[in-house]
Amino acid sequence: MLDFKDLAPAITRQRMVVEGYPTFVITDEHIKDYLSRLSVVTDMVTLIEPVTHVSELYGWAGWVHWETSGAHFYSWERPLSFFSVDIYTCKPFDPQAVLDFTREYFRTTELVAKEF
């Protein structure tokens, strides 16, 4: 694997992946609501309302476009109830606030996260 060199240190970039097991089936409306509220939690300016799409093979996906980048959401019902959120911003946000909000929103049985 190649070493990662920061090619643009003058540009703020913050990334975070959050994954977990929800205690309910995630729907289109949950995804839109979660991404809208995530925008508030991270203090991001929303450019378009969250959009979603469902694949019969892979489940739900959603995206919100922020002035300072955006977030993607993925949800599966099978082979297990699981979600993954990818956040990429050019403006700093509080990772602990994202974790607390996500844990509470989905009433998770387990939640993990990684920043990079």
Rank of each mutant, 00 (worst) to 15 (best):
T89W: 04
G62E: 06
S75W: 01
S36K: 14
I48H: 12
V54P: 00
Y105T: 07
F93Y: 15
I31G: 00
F73M: 11
E77M: 10
V98G: 05
P79D: 14
L99C: 13
E77F: 13
V40T: 12
S39G: 15
M44S: 08
L35G: 02
P79M: 15
G59R: 02
T46K: 12
T102V: 11
Y105A: 06
Q96K: 14
G59Q: 05
Y58S: 11
V25R: 09
I26E: 01
H30A: 05
E49W: 06
D28M: 06
D33I: 05
Y105Q: 06
V40Q: 12
D94Q: 07
V85P: 00
V45W: 02
T108N: 09
H53P: 00
S81W: 02
G62C: 11
V51A: 15
G70N: 08
H53M: 13
R107M: 11
L47S: 04
H30D: 15
F93K: 05
F83G: 02
S81L: 15
P92F: 12
P95T: 14
I87M: 06
E67P: 00
P95R: 10
D100T: 15
S55T: 13
F101D: 03
W60C: 01
S39Y: 01
H65G: 10
D33R: 10
P92C: 14
R78Q: 14
G59C: 11
V45S: 10
L47Q: 13
W60Q: 04
S81I: 08
F106A: 07
T27H: 09
V98W: 07
G59E: 03
Y88T: 06
F101G: 05
F73A: 04
V51D: 05
V51Y: 01
I87E: 01
S81M: 10
W76C: 04
F82N: 04
F83C: 08
E104G: 07
V41G: 05
F93V: 05
F106T: 07
P92W: 10
F83Y: 11
S69P: 01
V41S: 06
Y34C: 01
A61K: 00
I31A: 03
L57E: 11
F24L: 13
K32N: 08
F83T: 02
T108L: 12
H53N: 10
T89N: 12
D33M: 09
W63Q: 04
F101A: 06
D86G: 07
V51T: 13
V64A: 14
H30L: 07
D28A: 10
I48M: 10
P95M: 12
P95I: 14
Y74C: 04
E56F: 04
F93L: 08
S36G: 14
E104A: 15
V85W: 00
H30P: 04
V85C: 12
